[in-house]
Design a protein around this nucleic acid. Structure first.
Lengths: 167, 167
DNA sequence: CCATATAGTCAAGATACTTGACTACACCCA
DNA sequence: TGGGTGTAGTCAAGTATCTTGACTATATGG
């Protein structure tokens, strides 16, 4: 039963936003599946997004809120979950009675190590798929995009100098 | 408040998954903000993800389920919302009493036109920011990645619906 | 001490998405 | 012709994530 509409032939979007979205989702799905397969059943993409902002040596909860682009309540709820899973722990900040320090437990550091390994494996797969040259060009373009992103809060896409790492 | 925290010097992740995720989120945020500013208050990123799979001339609801990588119930709920907003409408498929045809209303086509315009504006901004050459390399790499996606058997996310792609 | 700002929490609700159970129709085939 | 099986879509309930608003506790600067 071939439809005359023939949906198969209708082109999917092919603009940069769509491509980025598809590529990002594919990477995340692959990574999350590998993490769960490695025994980290607590892993989810939302949690990964937060963990990406927590350095190895820990951080203030408030610093986390600044880095991740979400509300402090969202950060807190994610941290609640991660703490319950035993991935991170929260300690009172000795220098500020209001603050809390977030740091990894040994279980969390374990997951981080597995994550690093999996990242490299995925990256290797990408290089095999599209070639080293194209992969390097991809990273180069993404870094350049990020460097130009920083200080303009509105949608005005104004060019900035491409010197990065001014954090 | 002055921030003299040592955490500032800790590097953020710099692997392809993180970069893709950040770039994708930035694009989506910019696009969604512009869409809402253009008067399409119903617009959300989840809805955008579904609309990207609905061609101009409409489609079967079941075809939509195949294309988007989610459950049929998720698709349906998204469509329910879009129908309620008057963006799409569902008609019975004259060729199959079980099926429904999803197509845009004039309001939906209006939004599509605005979306196309905004996409081009964002793309122009990207080209200004990173240069035409790098932008072309980005698109090239993303397309290559997508083309090589299909034959990945092991770790890729699989549809969990019993109806998968057993044709 | 008081005013105000900051760090974090609690609670309620919205959205997106999942699983399970169900109805209606289509198609095959004996 | 009629039942078995598969497909298209719906209904209902639950989970995860994220948002807003209200709140407590501590810090800081007069």
């Amino acid at each position: 039963m071939v439809n005359k509409l023939d949906e198969k032939s209708v082109a999917l979007p092919d603009h940069v936003g769509w491509r980025l979205w598809q590529a990002s989702r594919a990477w995340q799905a692959e990574f999350a599946a590998a993490m769960r397969a490695a025994g980290h059943a607590w892993f989810s993409e939302a949690r990964a997004g937060l963990l990406g902002h927590i350095p190895r040596n820990g951080t203030r909860q408030s610093a986390l809120i600044e880095r991740a682009a979400t509300s402090k309540q969202a950060v807190q709820q994610l941290l609640d979950g991660l703490e319950e899973e035993g991935v991170i722990e929260r300690l009172p900040d000795p220098r500020d009675g209001r603050g809390k320090l977030v740091r990894y437990t040994s279980k969390g550091l374990d997951a981080l190590r597995d994550g690093d390994r999996i990242k490299l494996e995925i990256e290797r797969g990408y290089i095999v798929r599209i070639g080293e040259r194209r992969f390097a060009a991809l990273m180069d373009a993404l870094r350049a995009l990020d460097a130009g992103q920083g200080d303009e809060p509105e949608t005005a896409a104004r060019p900035r100098d491409e010197t990065s790492e001014s954090k």
